[in-house]
Design a protein around this nucleic acid. Sequence first.
DNA 1: AAAAAATAACCTCATTTGGGTGAGCCGGTA
DNA 2: TACCGGCTCACCCAAATGAGGTTATTTTTT
Lengths: 210, 210
Amino acid sequence: MSRDLDIRVAIIEDDETIREGYAYLIGQADGYKIAGTYPSFEEAAKKLVHDDPDVLLLDVELPGISGIDAIPKIKKLLPDTHILILTVYEQELLIFRALGNGAAGYLTKNTPPDKIISAIHEVMEGGGPMSAHIARMVIHSFQRNEQSPLTRRETEILEQIATGKSRKRIAQELYIDLETVKSHIKNIYHKLNVHSKADAIKTAKDNKFI
Amino acid sequence: MSRDLDIRVAIIEDDETIREGYAYLIGQADGYKIAGTYPSFEEAAKKLVHDDPDVLLLDVELPGISGIDAIPKIKKLLPDTHILILTVYEQELLIFRALGNGAAGYLTKNTPPDKIISAIHEVMEGGGPMSAHIARMVIHSFQRNEQSPLTRRETEILEQIATGKSRKRIAQELYIDLETVKSHIKNIYHKLNVHSKADAIKTAKDNKFI
DNA sequence: AAAAAATAACCTCATTTGGGTGAGCCGGTA
DNA sequence: TACCGGCTCACCCAAATGAGGTTATTTTTT
């Protein structure tokens, strides 16, 4: 039975079997309703505004424009629709690009049916559903490398440099002499084997020293 | 029944009622075993290494050193123990500091008992359990402000500046003239109402323009 | 066709950067 | 106690960069 307050779900997925599988799964669930299913973003773009889903399940690998690049375009068409990525890919770059583009959640395709349903519900409630492994990667991205060769002070100063501040300003804010800041920077450069601000920042970020 | 392969769980929580509540809850669950409970980090520090838990439930508000600041110290004592924050606080700053310090998950105290048990299991399997609202905040932190006054190119250039690169280098890498980069920067400064690199980066980051 | 965005040129002057070398002070540990 | 790492500061130099002004042409996008 589909009522007006059912959560309207749409799906963009090129594989027909998978697409119809999800559609069936969600359609028969109580409180959920399929607002539309499409094999590509191009197809979806024509009907999405009319179908007006609350939640959109989005595949990453699609013919034409990729799911990830489609996110901003979808958000323009439907600013209030929650986009849930549903894919086999677990590459960091893809995940962060998807989330950065505006996805509200990221599920892998081995997610069991009931979890998909509850993820849709969760996203409507202001949650951010992620598969366990994805969540770990996301959390990991906040963590630092403990093997950093930099001392506390050096790390602190390099962080300040990464905000674009001049050495003079850093010195003032840390209540130390400009010469001291310069000394630290020289030491940082030696340790990281670089000869410029930009390279120091890059090396440090790549290695999660900052 | 407690066997050798039970997951060993320890708890640092100052409120005795809550602490014993969790201990009972987890202790009676199949496959889990309480390795120790402590009212503060200072107390925990004495026994933690001996008790050797697989997972540590950690409260944020503690007498003495805060749970968040305790994380790095705990990691030093027990590098392989997964730390799960369990708190009432949902402030962004606290969350990101906790995750940055090495927490493997972040749960709020309204989490139902069965979810806590499954979170402990999840963290052992390499997951990163978070309460729905927390996960949303974490995901949100990856997102940009779409109301940015900066154009694509301006945003791109400001991002490059934020990596510490010089204007000359940015020009080379984008295959445009140095003068063009300077023009863009002037426009950026005007739009953001700033007069320096550092201020532009700060304003842009604060407003999630970059 | 109009508006917005991206491109580029020419000017000036203060500030910053990267690099070298040396040295004193303090706290923890061997 | 003696040593070492970490933090602090000093003086020197040349080259590069940053910030600001104004104007103008060419693409894109709407």
